[in-house]
Each structure stands twice: as structure tokens, then as C-alpha cells.
Simulated scan of single mutants.
Amino acid sequence: MKLKGKVAVITGGGTGIGRAAAIALAAEGARVVVMGRRPEPLNETVDIVKERGGEGLAIPSDVTKIEDIEKARDEVRETYGRLDILVNNAGSALFKPFMKTSLEDFDRIYQVDLRSVFAVSQLMLPLMLEGGGGSIINIASILGVLGGKSSSAYCAMKGGVVQLTRALAAELGPEIRVNCLCPSHIITPMMEDELSRIESKGKMDKLTKMFPMKRLAYPEDMTGSILFYASDDSKWLTGNILMIDGGLSCYI
């Protein structure tokens, strides 16, 4: 097991990429802590981890609230005494034309998609350093690197995550490695509305044909890369921005 004895925190760990990451990290021996606003899906994730022989802990918390992050950090310290892997996965989507995106929309997406990555990383960092260092894995988006219509606020925040990754990699090495994954269309609860809109317009076939892989992705398509950056397999890699997009960016 590549991660035996390690402790991992995954934000947004109740569903989608976060749940898949927790299950995969636990399968490699990590003790996983999932954070998120809703207790029920967090507990479901932990139940799956335990059913498969792993160890997990659910900490209901809102990553836009500093006091919640601090409480989660303190609980991780009290329970496990260390933190080796942080997966900043919590996020929210916003697909609106620029002129219809209100400042309230912009502020909301900022709080969830960018500010939380900064805050969680900053507050968890001392615990990681106490144990000798570790790996931070930020989940951004293909739209953090490339542009897209009707997604100006989302592009801005995910682009911020990409640049924050590079800045932290430069500043926190060698003890802390910081890398970023930029997925394209992943079939998760967060993407349900957008995918339903595409389906309703009869454009799903057109969309899937744009990918050299000829399909959309599932959360499990992310886990190999997450495990790679979490483990010593990537021990000399930091500041990397990895596009996980089925080849879609080849066309843009």
C-alpha cells in the first residue's frame, strides 16, 4: 500500500470526485477525513470506506467558514496527530452569461471555489508541517486554463486556483508539494444541471464526439492522478497543472 500510515483530508468528500478520491486513497492505506456541509453523504462515503476495510472520519463543515475549517483541523490533530495529504476538491459551478452574472453570483462562487482553497490550505498547513510535510492537490477545471462562454466567474475562480497552485508550489517547497488537476466534463451531482441542459438541447452526442476518448468522464477517472500526486510516485513533482479532459483541449 502506497499510503499506509498517511492521513488525508478531502473537502467536498460526500459526493462525486471527493467521494471517489476518499475511497481510492483509503484503498491504498490512507486514513481519510471527508469534509462537507451535509452530514448524510459524508457518512455514506465513510461507510463505503469502512466496508472496504479502510478507515475514515466524517467532519461536517462549511469550507467558506473559517471557524469550521479550524474545528476540522483541530479534530484531525486530536484524532490522528498528523496530516499528509490535502485534496481541495470542494467547489460549485456557475454557468451564466457575463451580463447576467450578478456581483452576488461572483462573490458566492469566489467564496466556494477560490477563497476556500486558500483558507483550507493556510489553516491545514501547520499540521502538515508538524508531520514533516506532504502533498496538496487542488481540483480546478479545464476552464481554469482555457476560456469558455457563459462561465466568466467560474473561469476566473478556477484560473485563480491554477495560479495559487503555482505560487504555493514555489513558496512551500520542498516540504510541501502542491499540484493541480484540471478536469473537463465529469459526471457528478455538481454537473447535473449543465449536462441536463446539454441533453435537452440534443447536443450530448455532439459534445461527446469532441473528445478523442468519445465519452464524458466519471469521478473514478480522476483517482489515478490523485493517487499519483498523493504518493511518493510524484515526489519530485510540484507546481504541475494536469489536464484530465479526455483530450478535449487538443481541439481548443
Rank of each mutant, 00 (worst) to 15 (best):
E70G: 00
I66S: 02
R108M: 08
Y80A: 08
G148H: 03
R115P: 08
G91D: 03
V145D: 05
R108S: 13
A90F: 12
A58H: 03
V117M: 04
L114I: 10
N88A: 00
G131Q: 12
R82D: 14
A153W: 09
S61N: 10
T64H: 00
K65Y: 04
L83I: 10
F98C: 15
S150W: 11
G159M: 07
I85P: 05
K158E: 01
G91V: 03
L103H: 14
Y80K: 11
P126S: 06
A153K: 05
N138Q: 06
T79M: 11
A119M: 11
G159C: 07
G81I: 15
S151D: 12
T79R: 15
M124Q: 05
I109A: 02
G160D: 10
P126W: 02
L103Q: 13
F98I: 15
G133P: 08
A140W: 04
S135I: 02
S61Y: 02
E130T: 13
L83F: 06
Y110N: 11
G91P: 06
E70K: 12
Q111D: 12
E78R: 15
M128G: 01
G132Y: 04
F98D: 14
V145A: 01
D68V: 05
M99D: 15
S141I: 11
N89A: 03
D107M: 11
G81N: 15
K65R: 13
I109L: 09
R77S: 09
